[in-house]
């Protein structure tokens, strides 16, 4: 189930542009790791390199190692499709498939695994995933309606349901609450706390309180200037980051004295 990820000497490029430089970090299983930092410092880029979504962009590539339970995800014999089946992702903007119903959206990943599933099993799994994402009661009467007809927060929870339905080992979330109201945000934070029993969670957030509330570990990314690569400045237990960080830059950033 939940797995540990070790990143070593990771450089991430868009074409010739080095976007993120030299990341070394260990992400603990069954915990929430938060990534914070100013806009453009490479948090999303780093997150996407963990499940090989980075290379989907033309010209994008990485150097270095991402090892999950002893397997280098960038090894030459590793299929990115398998990596993404193990490491799920929730995007910053809710992106349910517009042509699919709510039910079909949740079942989408399950159908990919090409296992023939009994309808009743599938129903159960969809229900369980929607309950897991705290969305079941709101949509149980309209599972056949389009997923795009939900509110923004509901859509985001639908995307979470879709991601957890395939039981990944790791769940990556890129600012999952940035478009949500405080109530939906709290709902998703509660959800994350529940989910970390089963998954390794990495979340990017601009919300310091959120990082402080939900995460065990926090990584602070920063960049020296425009056109410079982003770097992981500090990675420590969240309590330490928010009370007594090692780096001056971290302290400046979280206390709002940034820039």
């Amino acid at each position: 189930m939940a797995k540990r990820i070790d990143v070593s000497d990771l450089h991430i490029y868009y074409g010739n542009f080095l976007a993120v430089e030299n990341v070394n970090v260990s992400i603990e299983p069954r915990s929430i790791t938060a990534l914070i930092g100013p806009s453009g410092c490479g948090k999303s880029t780093f997150l996407r390199s963990l499940n090989r979504m980075h290379e989907v962009i033309p010209g994008a590539r990485v150097e270095g190692k991402v090892v999950m339970d002893g397997v280098d995800l960038y090894g030459s014999d590793v299929d990115p499709v398998d990596v993404r089946r193990q490491i799920g992702m929730v995007f910053q903007r809710p992106n349910p498939f517009p042509t699919m119903s709510i039910y079909e959206n949740v079942a989408a990943g399950l159908r990919l695994n090409a296992k023939r599933m009994k309808k009743s099993d599938l129903d159960d799994l969809v229900e369980r995933s929607l309950k897991g994402a705290n969305l079941w009661t709101e949509v149980k009467d309209r599972l056949d309606r389009p997923g795009a007809g939900l509110s923004g927060g509901q859509q985001q929870r639908l995307c979470i349901a879709r991601a957890i339905a395939v039981e990944p080992d790791v769940l990556l979330m890129d600012e999952p609450c940035s478009a949500l109201d405080p109530i939906s945000t709290l709902a998703i934070e509660d959800l994350m706390t529940e989910l970390k029993e089963r998954f390794t969670i990495v979340i990017v957030t601009h919300n310091m309180q959120q990082a402080a509330r939900v995460s065990e570990q926090t990584g602070f990314f920063n960049l020296n200037g425009v056109g410079q690569p982003g770097r992981l400045i500090e990675f420590n237990p969240t309590e330490k980051i928010f009370s007594n960080p090692d780096q001056k830059a971290t302290e400046d950033y979280i206390s709002g004295r940034f820039g």
Binding site: V56, R84, R93, N95, L112, N113, A163, V166
Partner: peptide, 15 residues
Amino acid sequence: VPSLHREAALALGAT
């Protein structure tokens, strides 16, 4: 087709 939707499929492990 918005890349958001294509990426949604890829991130689920679609070929």
